[in-house]
């Protein structure tokens, strides 16, 4: 599939200028060319490692940092809520 930088930037919530667009497309294309040369069929893959199961957590409450500490880096707060501009 062809690289549509504008569309990808939108998906990634990044703003890129027209100048940046050309250079970025060139840079990324170069890497994609390299990636395009990878072998087509390097073997089957399930991605599942049944012999290495992930450890699970018990259903026990663990204490956490206070609300103040967790929200201390927030740009904007109101009555304990985080604030963002309207979601339209």
């Amino acid at each position: 599939m062809k690289l549509d930088i504008r569309h990808i930037a939108k998906l990634a919530r990044l703003e890129i200028s027209e100048q940046e667009e050309q250079q970025l497309a060139r840079d990324i294309d170069a890497i994609l060319q390299m990636a395009g040369r990878l072998p087509e069929n390097a073997g089957a893959q399930t991605g599942l490692e049944a012999d290495r199961p992930a450890p699970l957590r018990r259903d026990i409450c663990t204490p956490s940092a206070s609300r103040e500490a967790l929200l201390a880096n927030a740009p904007e707060l109101r009555d304990g809520y985080l604030v963002v501009p309207k979601t339209v």
Binding site: M1, L3, I8, L11, A12, L24, L38, A42, G43
Partner: peptide, 29 residues
């Protein structure tokens, strides 16, 4: 930004098979 764009692209619909999945398999090899 460059890496985010590259990464977003290789996971996007239409590219995932050709890039991401292919790279995964090659990595396993």
């Amino acid at each position: 930004k460059r890496r985010i764009l590259l990464g977003t692209f290789v996971l996007s619909a239409g590219s995932r098979e050709a890039y991401y999945l292919r790279a995964q398999r090659a990595g396993q090899r």
